[in-house]
């Protein structure tokens, strides 16, 4: 029996784990965007604060994922074994690319365009929504794309702390010394990452062309 047959015979569990996996990614990305976008916008003109926040996000990014999960488990409220801890950790990982690209994307808008917008009597809010965000959108989306792909990858490790997802197959397969079981998790996870990356990339290009 090859791995493909195995995948087919266990398709209902593979599907359920995939949905679980995407759920972890979607929840963590949602939190990361809700925090990262407003924070990034607020940091655009505050250089000192921006250095500190990006520095902190950078440190979080360098912590190995399994270690980060480990750190979070003892934390009250968000910690413990299970999906919530994993979602918090994934959101922390996604924060850096989103923050960094929000800052650089908005800072990269042509200063002449900003000067004209202010000079013609746009309010700061109109400037942000009608000029800065639309023009920064391709860079913003590039950050979201990187964050999502990282998140799909790191989410496989979330199975180690009982958060479910496609990592369950990988850890089970390693324990059983069974390649077919490992591949039942690894292949869908890899496919997910590639498909999400390609489709966000296509969306990003269509935005840049406008």
């Amino acid at each position: 029996m090859n791995w493909f047959d195995f995948l087919l015979r266990n398709r209902s569990e593979v599907l359920a784990r995939s949905v679980e996996h995407l759920g972890l990614v979607a929840a963590s990305m949602g939190i990361a965007l809700l925090i990262g976008l407003p924070l990034g916008i607020a940091l655009v003109r505050r250089e000192q604060a921006q250095r500190w926040v990006l520095g902190a996000a950078n440190i979080v990014q360098t912590i190995p994922s399994l270690a980060l999960f480990g750190f979070l488990i003892p934390v009250p409220w968000i910690g413990g074994v299970g999906a919530s801890t994993a979602i918090v950790a994934l959101a922390l990982y996604a924060l850096l690319p989103i923050l960094r690209n929000t800052c650089t994307g908005i800072a990269g808008v042509d200063p002449a365009v900003i000067e004209a917008a202010r000079g013609m009597g746009m309010t700061e809010r109109q400037l942000l929504w009608q000029v800065q965000l639309p023009l920064a959108a391709p860079v913003l989306l590039a950050g979201i794309r990187v964050a999502t792909v990282i998140s799909i990858g790191v989410a496989t490790i979330a199975a180690a702390i009982g958060a479910g997802g496609l990592g369950v197959f990988i850890f089970r397969g390693v324990a059983m010394v069974n390649n077919q079981v490992i591949l039942a998790g690894a292949i869908p996870a890899a496919l997910l990452a590639v498909v999400v990356d390609l489709s966000l990339g296509a969306f990003q290009r269509s935005l840049a062309q406008r």
């Binding site: 002449a112 000067e115 004209a116 917008a117 000079g119």
Partner: peptide, 20 residues
Amino acid sequence: PIQLRRGIGYVIQDTGLFPH
């Protein structure tokens, strides 16, 4: 200031047209 600027036309060297 917002009302003032809307009553004063402003043209700059780099045009500052909105590219989007």
